[in-house]
Amino acid sequence: MTSAPSSGQPTRASSNPEPTLAQRVAGWLGLCAVPLIWLLHLALGVTLVSTACADAVKQDPMPGWHGTQWILGIASVCALVLALVMTYAAGRAWRKTAYVAKEKRDARRFIAWCGATASVAFTFGLAFSICILIAVPIERLCTAFD
């Protein structure tokens, strides 16, 4: 029985391993999903504030200032947690892809870097938007809709 020659060098498959599907998905989610979360949060905030301002002008109690603040608070916490999880996953995927990719001009490495960078930037944008909605009373935001 003959066996394969055993040299101390790794085989071709293990010398240049591919990033896993989970790493590729995390990179693309960081690139696309986190900006989408920020955009949806911003749209929800503008919609709720404009509705609350219009209801205040008409003296309609639905949903009211208090209800709008609760909805925005819960939506903000959910969006921030989701964005932070995706940012963490995109960052890990970038580090692992950069470790696997031997060339600096590798497309997978670039996509992973873009995913990590975009997710961090839009998570900061989301946190800034949340701070604006928390720090500024909704009544002051109504002046923009008058």
Rank of each mutant, 00 (worst) to 15 (best):
M1L: 08
M1G: 11
A4G: 05
S6G: 04
S6A: 07
Q9L: 15
Q9T: 10
T11G: 14
T11N: 12
R12M: 07
S14A: 12
T20L: 15
L21F: 12
L21C: 06
L21G: 03
A22W: 07
R24Y: 08
A26D: 05
G27S: 15
G27L: 03
G27Y: 01
G30H: 14
C32Y: 14
L36K: 14
W38R: 04
H41M: 10
L44M: 07
L48C: 11
V49N: 00
S50V: 04
T51L: 07
T51C: 06
D55T: 08
Q59Y: 00
Q69M: 10
W70V: 13
W70T: 13
A75V: 08
C78I: 14
A83L: 00
M86D: 04
T87M: 05
A89N: 04
A90M: 01
R92D: 07
A93C: 03
T97H: 04
A98N: 02
A101M: 09
K102R: 07
K102C: 04
E103P: 00
K104A: 07
A107F: 15
A107V: 11
A107C: 11
C114H: 02
A116E: 10
V120K: 08
F122Q: 03
A127V: 12
F128C: 11
I132H: 02
E139P: 05
E139I: 09
